[in-house]
């Protein structure tokens, strides 16, 4: 049986495509052994989309087996707890750079809150960031979780992150295996658009698929923060790939669709902007 090789996974569109292809190649299988190999490099935050698709394959009572993992990759995926889901022992993260891999139910807001507090907000070993910056990042993570909770109709939410000290960045990834942006748009407006267009529509300020309640500002605010922070936002939903950073929007149609939605954010930890200063915060004309 040929192994499903994932090679040199960072977080570019082709890397998400490798994970989507792995799912597509195996999605019709039942009661089979599915061997997976990880070569060269694997960004730890990408454990979230990988975990999501492997979970779907295991839902069909397949047996996922890692038959080759490079030592460096194995070590980081043992430290962040991902490989514990596949029988490997947990390794101590002595450098304190991992944000643990977790699988949780979408209605488990309390659990996610604790996760964000312990893994990020109150983590002394993460780099020295202003209170305002750390708060903005935490709020972004919470908004993303609530988005998945409200819109995706998923059974589980998968999260994982990684701090890259050398590059002064934190990558955080949140994944669901729900209906995706395109289907959500179809459900709400009874109109068919591509996955890419559904994502582009959803990130625009005030666009929402909620009925009877205003909204649609969570992703818009996140985009604004990303721009100011010089970070990066990626959304992969179905066969749509969307990326937003200081160079603008970049979209792409993936050859095979991802069975749900991935939101991956990259934050700069060396951001010196003052996020506590709000010039027009006058309470008088609030309402």
């Amino acid at each position: 049986m040929t192994s499903n090789n994932l090679c040199n996974i960072h977080s570019s569109s082709s890397d998400y495509a490798q994970i989507a292809n792995l799912y597509d190649k195996n999605k019709e299988k039942y009661f089979e052994k599915i061997p997976v190999s990880l070569y060269e490099w694997f960004n730890a935050n990408m454990a979230a989309p990988l975990g999501a698709v492997l979970d779907l394959l295991e839902d069909n009572l397949n047996d996922v087996v890692f038959d080759h993992i490079n030592n460096g990759i194995k070590s980081i995926l043992q430290k962040n707890g991902f490989l514990s889901h596949f029988g490997f022992p947990l390794q101590v993260d002595s450098y304190g750079t991992t944000i643990q891999y977790k699988k949780m139910k979408p209605d488990d807001g309390r659990y996610f809150r604790e996760y964000v507090s312990t893994q990020f907000l109150n983590r002394p070993e993460l780099p020295n960031m202003s209170v305002g910056l750390r708060k903005k990042m935490t709020e972004a993570m919470l908004e993303l979780f609530v988005n998945a909770q409200l819109h995706s109709e998923t059974k589980h939410v998968y999260t994982c992150g990684q701090f890259f000290p050398k590059y002064h960045t934190i990558e955080f990834c949140i994944v669901d295996t729900g209906i995706g942006f395109k289907q959500k748009f179809l459900q709400r407006f009874d109109k068919k658009i591509s996955s890419v267009e559904a994502i582009r529509w959803a990130v625009k300020d005030r666009n929402t698929t909620k009925i009877g309640v205003s909204g649609g500002i969570g992703l818009a605010i996140l985009s604004e923060f990303i721009l100011r922070n010089n970070g990066k936002l990626q959304i992969i939903s179905g066969d749509g790939f969307y990326q937003y950073d200081s160079s603008g929007e970049q979209v792409e149609k993936l050859y095979k669709g991802f069975p749900g939605t991935i939101v991956n954010v990259s934050f700069r930890t060396d951001d010196t902007n003052n996020y506590s200063l709000v010039s027009e915060a006058k309470k008088t004309a609030l309402f």
């Binding site: 005030r206 205003s214 649609g216 500002i217 027009e280 915060a281 609030l286 309402f287």
Partner: peptide, 26 residues
């Protein structure tokens, strides 16, 4: 309420005013 949170609330209020005043906007 912290100033940064007021900024968020202000935006929520502006969005709600527009949304309920003119649902056809969406």
């Amino acid at each position: 309420m912290a100033d940064t949170d007021i900024a968020l609330l202000r935006r929520v209020i502006e969005t709600a005013k527009l949304y309920y005043k003119d649902p056809s906007w969406l």
